[in-house]
Design a protein around this nucleic acid. Structure first.
Lengths: 134, 134
DNA sequence: TTGTTCTGTAATAAAAATAATTACAGAATG
DNA sequence: CATTCTGTAATTATTTTTATTACAGAACAA
């Protein structure tokens, strides 16, 4: 199971898609039930990726930078998970063993294949679709 | 990124497929470069699932219970990951918020869709295929 | 039979990853 | 110019993952 960032990001964007106007990090954090600072961190990633815009200062907050139908889960996956889906062993495998020597490359290959399958599916799901499921 | 068990299990089975005779947990651990107890734990899972057989006692060790071409990555995925691919937030989202109330179900749905895509791809990859990549 | 070398498993400790909290400067608004 | 937001760094706490220790039991060989 991979970390909760994907769920957090989806939750944030679905909220922004649903509610009128800009939402504060505290409000969003209250819905997800996590710390507002974490929300601000994820939002800063989403902002850098162009999905949200933020208004600083009093009455500030974030809102979507594009229609929810333009935000695909495949894009979000890429924003959140820079590394592959499956972890390598954190220790270097024995390089004197033929399997140990190649397992890294093999796992990288599997990662790529798995992600391609996943992304293919996620390219056709948008935040708008998720909003409909709410 | 999800934990390293999948990589560990694949490494174990590829080794067993490659080498002659039963392999001890220490030997396997030496190739993966992890603790032998971890190897024994994973092997006990693989044994329960019917993929390996183990000989206890002196000169003991494990070997494949079936030809490598019969062991599909989709089966291994199922053996290792009982929970979904994407974590829920570990805190319960705000149930008074429409999104918070539904996000769990929505994430479950995405998990299912993602896993189906993944498993579809992994059904056609076996340990034998990985052995060829070594 | 008895010593040796394996496994199985539980219990504990260490390390790493994740999340929460605290703190504070700066932006926008009324 | 006080208030209420954001951004970000730094620290602490929690959880997850991995490693280690310990020991009983199985199989074998001398």
């Amino acid at each position: 199971m991979i970390n909760g960032r994907f769920a957090t990001v989806i939750h944030i964007l679905t909220l922004l898609a649903q509610e009128e106007g800009a939402l504060s990090s505290s409000y969003i954090a209250g819905s997800i039930n996590i710390n507002p600072v974490l929300v601000r961190k994820e939002i800063s990633v989403l902002r850098a990726a162009g999905f949200v815009v933020t208004q600083e200062g009093k009455n500030g907050g974030s809102s979507l930078a594009m229609p929810p139908s333009k935000i695909r889960l495949s894009d979000l996956y890429r924003v959140v998970y820079k590394e592959g889906l499956f972890a390598h062993s954190r220790n270097l495998p024995n390089q004197h063993c033929t399997v140990g020597k190649r397992i890294g490359v093999i796992m990288d290959g599997l990662n790529t294949e798995a992600e391609q399958a996943l992304l293919k599916r996620f390219r056709s799901i948008t935040i708008r679709d998720l909003l409909e499921r709410v």
